[in-house]
């Protein structure tokens, strides 16, 4: 069961998360940053609740009012040409 993939984008397994949490005795946030669980192409939309459930179980941290890992723009992958464009609709 430990080789179960939790984060599909980055193929982070349950074992990866458990090992990292155990080795560094760190916060849920740090486990995410170290394993990249929830930080792949989809921005965590698919696995965020599952990753949070695993981390609650592994680290014992209960979800607070803030979203556990800050959501940063862009919230969709964007091409450089889109970012560089200055097209503006008033």
């Amino acid at each position: 069961m430990d080789d179960l993939i939790i984060c599909r984008c980055e193929e982070v397994s349950l074992a990866d998360i458990k090992r990292t949490a155990h080795m560094y005795q760190c916060s849920a946030r740090e486990v995410k940053l170290r394993t990249r669980a929830g930080m792949g192409y989809c921005g965590g939309r698919t696995c965020r609740p599952a990753v949070d459930a695993v981390l609650e179980e592994v680290t014992g941290e209960k979800p607070g009012n803030d979203i556990p890992l800050k959501v940063s723009p862009p919230v969709r992958p964007v091409s450089l040409s889109t970012l560089g464009g200055s097209e503006r609709h008033e």
Binding site: M1, D3, L4, I5, I6, R8, L14, R45, T46, C47, P49, A50, G85, E87, R88, H89, E90
Partner: peptide, 22 residues
């Protein structure tokens, strides 16, 4: 492109929670 507005309504709905199974 970009759109400018005085007011903004976020009606983005929901996403599905995953149930990971091997």
């Amino acid at each position: 492109g970009s759109f400018e507005t005085e007011n903004l309504l976020l009606a983005t709905g929901a996403a599905e929670s995953a149930v990971p199974v091997p």
